[in-house]
Design a protein around this nucleic acid. Structure first.
Lengths: 142, 142
DNA sequence: TTCCTATTGAAAATCTTTTTCAATTATAAA
DNA sequence: TTTATAATTGAAAAAGATTTTCAATAGGAA
């Protein structure tokens, strides 16, 4: 999924393709780690200085609505966004550099069924997130 | 773990036992669902009207520091707190009434080891949270 | 009971996010 | 192309949430 297809998706949902949106899409689409609205704003303004922070919020809102990005929850805060993976994937976050890696977690079904039986809950969603150090950060010491 | 032991814990860590703290502890300790600072404030003021919102924030901060409460992350927001379970437990949340149930998730180890092998991450923490409908809310229709 | 200092609540400050609004601009239609 | 129009913009204001400041108060050790 390249950055152009995000623009196409926006367009197909009746949203106009503006400079502000292109700038925001370019930044968040190419990031390997989750970015806050302010970080997107600061990075995107390097290429498009007229950009307003409000447009960043509004564009992130639309990208999230189209499932192109998703919010990342971390101990330090829950305002950051990253490109969504296709299909149902879970997140693995590097505690040092913030890099986000997706992984499949299908093996969860038996656990969920067992919890469901034990608690009598009808379970419809799950969040699984792992934290650790990526290969690079392990190498480069603490 | 009763509410008195939270007060003891606060006291043992050098914090004074004040009316404001007692009021906050009483409310959050007895809640079955996660409460935001504002919800704690509103509930606690019924018993102790002089309470200030600032003291709610400050008390929640200390309770979290002592691991007596923990922040609950939800699609709707991440500002709410619930009593912590003892030992390593995961959360199961009712999407309708908000009730929080803890469960053990030890069966996760094999999955985590496999992801670790596949991604070369050194995984040190995990978050697992399930969402669904509790028994009561299933009964009482949508 | 006294004294010291942690704690308090009110107000102000700070941050983040949302709303308002007049000007601009993307896009469909002519 | 040009035109018309409605979506979008950025700035400013508003709204919310959280933190800081500060003088007054009250917990608890002596």
């Amino acid at each position: 999924m390249n950055s152009k297809s995000w623009l196409t998706a926006l367009s197909e949902h009746g949203y106009r393709l503006t400079e502000a949106r292109r700038a925001v899409v370019a930044i968040i689409h190419s990031s390997q780690r989750a970015l806050t609205p302010l970080e997107v704003y600061d990075s995107a303004r390097l290429a498009y200085p007229e950009l307003g922070l409000v447009s960043v919020y509004r564009t992130l809102e639309k990208l999230e609505e189209l499932n192109l990005i998703q919010r990342v929850h971390q101990p330090a805060g829950c305002q950051a966004f990253i490109s969504s993976a296709e299909g149902h994937k879970h997140l693995l976050l590097c505690k040092r550099c913030g890099q986000v890696t997706f992984f499949e977690g299908d093996d969860l079904e038996p656990l969920i069924k067992s919890i469901s039986r034990r608690t009598n809950y009808a379970i419809s969603e799950h969040w699984l997130q792992l934290f650790g150090l990526c290969e690079n950060c392990q190498k480069s010491g603490s």
